[in-house]
Design a protein around this nucleic acid. Structure first.
Length: 292
DNA sequence: CACCAGGCAAGCC
DNA sequence: GGCTTGCATGGT
């Protein structure tokens, strides 16, 4: 992997295990949209970015070297060897298939607060609508970001949302989830929960702490652990994972979620669970496993 | 137009 | 402690 700066772009050559279509469509993030051939534009960490890919060459448009080093390198998890992750997972035949199919997936290092709210919104919802609600939330309460002549909006802070009153979230049409967002905002703004404190905890402790927020249950907590705290031992079991696990590992027979979680823990272990989950989720959704 | 979506909390027994 | 039900809204 070689990183160079050209005009105001950052170019990454000979990148391996990186595919924007896989990364942005494996269900981990909600603020990236296709804006052209092999091109996506999104907002993260208070910055907007257009990224395009041509084979194993990546271009980040109008980005300073400083922002690349301080923000995007880590955001795209460029320091992790996904080839090694896939090699270890591929000792299992099913995982070899899934990891081959979504071979360019990377688990982004996203903002904790944004993942907290995003996955609270995800409960009993579909992905297009989740994206719409989050976009309306940012438009209503995020800060303006000007990038390449267009206006984008940052994800609003916990402090900003914590002082909202009942009804202020009507405009985002989040349904019954609006009260959960406010509850989470108050806990994070007051410091009852904080990233530093959560980072100091074991995964099990952090999960328990997250679940004190109304609207964060078992599954949403696992998503926050994996996507917001980068705990790759977390293995969120949603309807898609449940279906593909039943289909692949249980002869198509229905299983309780708890049993699937235990099976994954034993099979993938603490180090590979989260990665396995992403490859399976992408494979299941792209191939509509279990929907007919 | 039903059905259901990356579930959860509250209310039951 | 396990099981059932209501929840807002809109995508398919």
């Amino acid at each position: 992997m070689e990183i160079t700066s050209k005009n105001s772009d950052i170019i990454i050559r000979n990148v391996r295990d990186f595919d924007t279509a896989h990364i942005f469509d494996c269900g981990q993030c909600f603020r990236w949209n296709r804006t052209g051939d092999n091109e996506y534009t999104g907002v993260a960490a208070g910055r907007a970015l257009t990224i395009s890919q041509n084979g194993n060459e990546i271009t980040l448009r109008d980005v300073s070297e400083r922002d690349f080093r301080d923000i995007w390198y880590n955001y795209f998890d460029l320091g992790t060897d996904y080839g090694a992750v896939k090699a270890r997972l591929s000792r299992d035949d099913i995982m070899r298939l899934a990891a081959g199919y979504g071979g360019g997936i990377r688990i982004l290092n996203q903002d904790l607060w944004e993942t907290v709210v995003s996955f609270i919104i995800s409960a009993s919802n579909n992905i297009p609508r989740i994206k719409g609600i989050i976009e309306r939330l940012c438009c209503a309460y995020g800060d303006e970001i000007v990038y390449r002549g267009k206006i984008y909006r940052s994800f609003p802070s916990a402090k900003r949302l914590s002082c909202l009153e009942r009804g202020d979230l009507d405009v985002i049409r989040a349904g019954f989830r609006d009260k959960y967002i406010i509850d989470a905002a108050k806990k994070f703004a007051d410091g009852v929960l904080s990233e530093d404190a959560l980072n100091a905890m074991t995964t099990a402790e952090a999960k328990k702490a997250l679940m004190t927020v109304s609207g964060i249950g078992n599954k949403v907590a696992d998503c926050i652990l994996l996507f917001g705290l980068h705990r790759t031992d977390a293995f969120p079991v949603d309807v898609w994972i449940k279906r593909i696990m039943e289909y692949c590992y249980f002869g198509g027979e229905k299983q309780p979620i708890e049993k699937i979680s235990r099976f994954a823990e034993e099979k993938f272990g603490a180090e590979l669970g989260g990665y396995a989950q992403q490859y399976l989720f992408f494979y299941a959704r792209e191939n509509k496993i279990g929907t007919d």
